[in-house]
């Protein structure tokens, strides 16, 4: 992997021919190994997590092998990496959508990979929010109802006022009764953000939330996510390909740096945990 670890930035080349990503970085050795997270108590911790998929011929295809990765309470982490590198899989593992083959995923001291599937679903509904790249709003429901859906499956009571407040906050106070098809792409993603925040999550997972929207809306969405997470003390793990998005966050993690499989593929280069210079 053509990483430039000179201390002035990194170069990430992908199959899609991405531009070189150059970010002035300061390698924090402790953070590099993911054993500490900015001095704040750990909220999420992945320990020796391995995940593989089955190939058509039945052989396993290892995707992730993460010795350790942690996120502190209220911390905002950007996860970058090449396509197919397992970023979404990692988010799915954290959310409990996918089960690891091995290892522990600890959320506030609780091993969530040991939960039954139903308990895991409830746990996700109660404590996590998820923003998808393609918004995934349900077309049959209005913007407000889509936000309310974010509360429906949690153990918390449905708070209609909060749903309205969130939509107003994302600038859609006058579009609450509109269905997704009547909203622009940017508006749909704002509804998706509001939905992810609806149940007052402790952890917000955002999977390339700006990938499908125009540049003008990108910054709005990023600001919205970042500011809301800050205000509500929500931990954030955001996956992105966009340099301009990544550089806005204090902590940027290269997936290849925490994934043993890609560490080996990159000729033994140490994994990277990056922190943008303040």
């Amino acid at each position: 992997m053509p990483y430039d670890a000179s201390g002035n930035g990194i170069v990430v080349a992908t199959e899609q021919g991405w531009d070189t990503l150059r970010i002035p970085i300061r390698v924090d050795e402790a953070a590099r190994w993911g054993t500490r997270a900015s001095g704040i108590g750990k909220m999420l911790e992945l320990v020796n997590v391995k995940k593989s998929y089955q190939q058509p011929n039945g052989d396993p295809l290892p995707i992730l092998s993460i010795p350790h990765f942690a996120v502190a309470g209220g911390e905002q982490v950007v996860l970058v990496g090449r396509s197919g590198g397992g970023k979404t899989t990692l988010l799915h593992l954290i959310a409990g959508i996918t089960r690891p083959d091995f290892g522990q995923i600890i959320f506030e001291g609780r091993n969530i990979e040991r939960l039954s599937e139903a308990a895991s679903d409830r746990f996700r509904a109660t404590w996590m929010g998820y923003v998808f790249q393609t918004f995934n709003l349900l077309p049959a429901f209005t913007a407000l109802e889509n936000v309310l859906l974010g509360m429906t499956f949690s153990r918390k009571p449905v708070d209609r006022q909060r749903a309205i407040m969130l939509l107003e906050r994302v600038g859609l106070g006058d579009r609450m009764q509109h269905k997704p098809t009547a909203l622009s792409v940017g508006e749909q993603q704002r509804v998706a953000v509001a939905r992810a925040l609806a149940n007052k999550p402790r952890l917000l997972l955002a999977d390339e939330p700006t990938a499908n929207i125009d540049a003008a809306n990108q910054q709005n969405i990023v600001d919205l996510i970042r500011e809301t997470a800050e205000e509500e003390q929500i931990s954030l793990v955001l996956v992105t390909h966009a340099i301009e998005v990544a550089e806005q966050f204090k902590r940027v993690v290269l997936l290849d740096d925490i994934n043993e499989l890609t560490m080996k593929a990159s000729s033994g280069t140490a994994s990277w945990a990056m922190q943008a210079e303040e």
């Binding site: 959310a95 959508i97 599937e117 139903a118 679903d121 409830r122 996700r124 509904a125 109660t126 998820y130 998808f132 995934n136 349900l138 077309p139 859906l149 974010g150 429906t152 499956f153 949690s154 939905r195 149940n199």
Partner: peptide
């Protein structure tokens, strides 16, 4: 499928 997957991702159980 996608709609159901979204509901599941939002926390809906299989039985739901």
């Amino acid at each position: 499928r996608n709609e159901i997957a979204v509901l599941r991702a939002l926390g809906a159980e299989r039985s739901t």
